[in-house]
Amino acid sequence: MPLLGRRTRAMHDFLRERAGLGVQPWARLWREGHGDTWLANTGYIERREERWLRALLD
């Protein structure tokens, strides 16, 4: 599970970086709110990480 949180955070950071440079389609996706979605997904995943680990390993 830690990998999933890192992956979604990396996607947010990548999108923000490329959008900041004006690279398409990333700039358009950022304007459309995709960065907010990736960030929200990251928070959701990270807040539940321990719960998911217990469910998978118990």
Rank of each mutant, 00 (worst) to 15 (best):
R47C: 05
A19K: 12
R7G: 01
R54M: 07
G35A: 08
L3H: 12
G43P: 02
L4A: 09
A40P: 01
L4Y: 05
R18N: 07
R7M: 07
L56W: 08
R54Q: 07
P25N: 13
A40T: 08
G20R: 06
R6I: 02
M11S: 07
N41Q: 08
D58A: 11
R48C: 02
T8A: 04
N41W: 15
R16W: 10
Q24P: 06
G20C: 06
T8W: 11
L39M: 12
N41A: 13
R6P: 00
R31I: 00
H34A: 13
A27Q: 09
A19F: 06
L15A: 08
R47Q: 07
Q24A: 14
W26R: 01
G22K: 09
E17N: 09
W30D: 06
D58M: 03
L29K: 12
H34I: 00
V23M: 14
A55K: 15
R47L: 14
R51E: 13
R54L: 10
R47D: 12
E32Q: 14
E49G: 03
E46I: 06
Q24Y: 02
L21D: 02
Q24D: 06
E50K: 14
M1H: 05
Q24R: 10
Y44K: 11
H12L: 01
L53Q: 08
R18F: 00
M11K: 09
D36A: 15
D36L: 10
A19E: 06
G20Y: 04
L29F: 11
D13K: 07
G22P: 09
T42A: 12
G20W: 03
L57C: 00
G35N: 08
G43R: 15
E17W: 12
T42P: 00
F14E: 04
E17L: 13
L21Q: 15
D36G: 14
R54K: 12
A27D: 05
R16I: 09
H34Q: 07
G43V: 02
R48I: 06
G43Q: 11
